[in-house]
Amino acid sequence: MSELAEKIEIIRRLKETILSMEGFSTGPDSRLLDFGLGPMNAAFPGGAFPVGAIHELISPTEACAAAATGFLSGLLSVLMKKEGICLWVSAERKLFAPGLKFLGVEPHRIIFIGVKREKEALWVMEQGLKCNSLAAVVAEIRDISFAESRRLQLAVETSKVTGFLHRQHPRIENTLACVSRWKIRPLASRTGELPGVGFPCLEVELVKIRNGRPGVWQFEWKNGTFNLITERSRITVKLPELQKQRHYA
């Protein structure tokens, strides 16, 4: 019996070693952060939302972009923990600062960088990711190549800063060196028989996750945290695609 326990322990340690070699931070601090995602944590490698990595969010429409901004703001509110500072890089000014407060983010703790060209945005994001005093870096970039994303990944591996790459209307959904790919869609709010608009509801689709399990979840933002509505495992992903993903990762 003790032999079996020993083996389980060895396997667990090996898994952790592999994860850390693949660029995941599995420090004790990453488990302390509770993003309120609940059962969704099972989809992530190591059972915790990967911090110190770059997440890619793809929004095909304006409404999806607002939903994605909302979702990542919800994550930011935990990452910033009321005192962190975040860098937000964008080419156009769409974000309305008072709206962030509804998602638990103090808008004046964010330093906005308005860039003129996407190349500048990439440079700023890389500089930001290298600065480990920041809680997170958000960049709104439309198109980015695999090589460019790998540069960003290398920056976070040393600094352990969490990056979010928000791509709105990308020309192609090319493979990137990011740890995950998300698609957020707005959902009709649940008001039952009552009139009016309810709490914001989102459909969160984890399209790709390195060493994790993709899936679709539905959340409601209520009382300053995410609340799970339903969970659906993603079975539509075909095996070859998964293998290809592993190859690039």
Partner: peptide, 29 residues
């Protein structure tokens, strides 16, 4: 509310960015 070290690192980062793309790019609300 951040530590002194963090402040310096962040203001140095902002200096860096402002030096490259111009101080008008940096803003807060």
């Amino acid at each position: 509310g951040t530590t002194n070290l963090g402040q310096t690192a962040i203001s140095e980062l902002v200096d860096n960015i402002a030096g490259k793309i111009g101080i008008q790019a940096v803003h807060r609300y």
